[in-house]
Design a protein around this nucleic acid. Structure first.
Lengths: 209, 209
DNA sequence: AAATGATTTAATCATTTGTTTAAATCAAAA
DNA sequence: TTTTGATTTAAACAAATGATTAAATCATTT
């Protein structure tokens, strides 16, 4: 009995296919990517794709699930902590997200698209800890209406702003760069600046709304 | 000599095709939409599509161009005005954008996607007045570093925040709605709230950055 | 009414695309 | 070495897809 017989020295085909698929799917979306393209990018034969993953759709499902997890997992760990204040959580979330997005710049658009065309399936891609954390955070936001004079900002605005300020520049990077004449290096610097800036903005936003 | 012989009473085929194409393209993107689908949605024969517009790609080009113009035109008119302050311009822009996006909720994702995969073509879809206006506004932003104590916020941040706060909720609407249990009606109300809120947030952001 | 030219249709073509099949190749076990 | 089972390949299939063709239909002009 053998578990695995690695034939090629470099990297086994399964991993190469997944890597190629992830790159292409996140870049161009499901429909625009052809199976032959994935095979070529992976440097393997077309039939291998269906041998390892039963179909294009199955392969996509896997990529999608992993991307989603990567997207959610950045938060779930630290967000369950009861002792952290909302502001501290925002700091941690923004920091961790921007770091992750600098490595995976086209994750936002990919996920926005996929969920946009399949809103129902969102729940399936999320594990329970993630859901629990989200509930907790929203609860914490709602019950945070403490000693403020003015009425509390709707938690939708707070979530939308936090996520929007963090994620949007990545989704719009090509436009922004082209439109404002900024190259990839400057972009990275600016995004790193935002790790500190966004929490400040969020704070003043929540205080004098 | 005839200009046009409108056969069908309701609406001529050309317009119906364009309308169907716009709906489907903006919903699912170029590759995911099939010519037969457009024909069915428009309630016409497949060959008509190629009769009026030479090909799927040509049809898409038209939809894309019109969408882009719709997106840019909201701004170009009022933004050339020298006498308006930056803050007043922000108020006008946010107001006008949100109004337009409530009518066309999937325009943002559509444009982000298309430009994301074809950054070079961005310039072609923009007319000169639009470019002029953009230059002017950025110039106004840069030279606005007046009497502030702290150093001025990079204009990239200002643009990114203004556009992000305005547009992102629409791009992420399906996720947000699903995740936070908000229906379309509430969503519209919240977006309308943001017409007033975003300019306030932008102000405090630019003052104590 | 007949002619004209625009509009619309059904049928077909050629290519692309996802998937399958049957055979070849290779590494490890017997 | 031979066998065994996993891995890889070339070739082919069936359906989907963008586009074309040739004929039919309709509204208007003559």
């Amino acid at each position: 009995m053998k578990k695995k017989t690695t034939r090629s020295i470099d990297q086994n085909a399964e991993a190469k296919i997944k890597e190629a698929a992830r790159k292409l799917f996140t870049q161009k979306g499901y429909a625009a990517v052809k199976t032959r393209e994935i095979a070529a990018e992976a440097g393997i034969n077309l039939a291998l794709l269906n041998y390892y993953f039963r179909s294009k759709e199955k392969l996509f499902e896997i990529i999608m699930m992993e991307s989603m997890q990567q997207f959610m997992q950045s938060i779930s760990i630290l967000f369950l902590d009861e002792k952290l204040s909302v502001h501290r959580k925002i700091e941690l979330l923004v920091e961790s997200y921007i770091t992750m997005l600098l490595e995976n710049p086209n994750l936002p658009l990919f996920i926005l698209n996929e969920i946009g065309s399949n809103p129902k399936k969102l729940g399936e891609h999320m594990d329970n800890p993630t859901k629990a954390m989200r509930e907790k955070f929203i609860g914490q936001l709602k019950s945070n209406a403490g000693g403020n004079k003015k009425q509390q900002l709707h938690y939708f605005h707070i979530m939308a702003n936090m996520i929007g300020l963090t994620i949007f520049p990545f989704a719009a990077a090509p436009i922004m760069q082209q439109l404002m004449g900024i190259d990839k290096k400057e972009f990275a610097v600016l995004m790193t600046e935002r790790k500190k800036l966004i929490p400040l903005w969020m704070k003043s936003m929540m205080e004098n709304s």
